[in-house]
């Protein structure tokens, strides 16, 4: 169930040239399932900005964000102690039992964000995931150490080969796995679905209005009919997705 609350910015840490992590403290009780997201209100901007939850503990949650526009550029400048109005507990989240005992967590860029908390919850549920994280160059890599610290095998791919396996995530899917959870650029998600016939869940990113199902701004057509990415998503089963040309 969605909640609205005021959160305090505890950490705003630069991870790479464009990516930062933000930790906010407050009432996190509505954040229940990995893959859910939050909507953060920023001074001077009308629409809230959505971010997948990367991690949570008893009194705080973390999101990762790439500076890509007015909202995220503003977010990067906010100091510790800033109070932010946040809607929490949005969206459906991943199904921990949908993709077998040895799923791949496939992330591209900031798409790795929801997969980190998912990895933790899968481990608690007795599932043994592996992480497959794709970046452009070695300088763009973040959260590889955090995934490894969970004790799971973590493969890195870079497009230019400057770290890990040279190529795209689909070039590193040759070992056995039971299914996949994926989040990242649309082209990557589609390539993963084309490269794999295993069960899969995908977290989609669409430009949103409200974030809680009222405005119909983010509805996509699926094989199961129209779905609001903010409400019936952002996580969809791979079979539902209609890839547009």
């Amino acid at each position: 169930m969605m909640k609205q609350g005021v959160f305090e910015l505890a950490e705003n840490t630069v991870l790479t040239g464009k990516v930062s992590s933000l930790r906010l403290t407050g009432d996190v009780s509505a954040i229940e399932i990995p893959g859910q997201f939050v909507q953060i209100q920023l001074d001077g901007l009308f629409l809230r900005r959505p971010f997948s939850v990367c991690d949570r503990d008893d009194n705080s949650f973390t999101v990762l964000y790439e500076t890509a526009g007015t909202g995220t550029e503003l977010l990067r400048t906010l100091p510790t102690g800033t109070e932010l109005d946040v809607l929490t507990g949005l969206g459906n989240g991943f199904d921990l039992y949908r993709c077998g005992d040895t799923p791949l967590l496939i992330g591209g860029g900031t798409g790795i964000s929801p997969l980190y908390w998912l990895a933790k919850e899968l481990l608690k549920s007795g599932v043994s995931p592996k992480a497959l994280l794709g970046f452009n160059t070695a300088d763009d890599v973040f959260y590889a150490d955090e995934f490894e610290a969970l004790g799971i095998e973590t493969l890195i791919t870079t497009a230019d080969g400057s770290r890990g396996i040279k190529g795209l995530v689909i070039d590193a899917m040759d070992k056995p796995y039971s299914g996949f959870y994926a989040c990242g650029p649309e082209a990557m998600l589609r390539a993963v679905c084309e490269a794999s016939s295993k069960p899969g869940q995908i977290s989609l990113d669409r430009r949103m209005g409200c974030g809680f199902g009222a405005c119909m701004g983010c509805t996509v057509m699926t094989w199961n009919g129209p779905k609001r990415i903010c409400k019936e998503g952002p996580v969809l089963d791979r079979e539902e997705i209609i890839w547009e040309d």
Binding site: F46, R207, G217
Partner: peptide, 23 residues
């Protein structure tokens, strides 16, 4: 009605644009 293709929403100063298209 499914409505219009995405994106249907855009930010504006002190407001927003929508083109949901009567979904």
């Amino acid at each position: 009605r499914y409505g219009n293709p995405l994106p249907r929403i855009a930010e504006a100063k002190a407001g927003m644009l929508n083109a949901v298209g009567l979904q």
